[in-house]
Amino acid sequence: MARALITVPPNAKRGEVIEVRVLIQHPMETGYRPGSDGRILPRDLIRKFSCRYDDGKSNEIVFSAELYAAIAANPLISFHTVATGSGTLTFLWEGDNGFMQSEMAAIKVS
């Protein structure tokens, strides 16, 4: 499993806009680059990312992204969401060669 680093403030005030940062280990191989043997390395990209926020009342995707070859290796994505209630954020990355990884982070909202 790829290593991921999730940065979500563990505590927030209701209605506060929080920054969410996610970093995941992935080569984001473009499919345009030759390897050491001169042959083109096959494309291996994370294509989709989403963040689902379950705050006890609703459970919906609050942010999502489609990524292309121009996104750097070990992709970093930073975005914002309103702290609506205590619960969990679920992150999902999907990509070529059946890549799929999910991570969770808890948030306490007062």
Partner: peptide, 12 residues
């Protein structure tokens, strides 16, 4: 550290 990609290896 929340942006430094090397921290992925540190975590490993």
């Amino acid at each position: 550290d929340t942006q430094n990609p090397a921290m992925l290896w540190v975590k490993d």
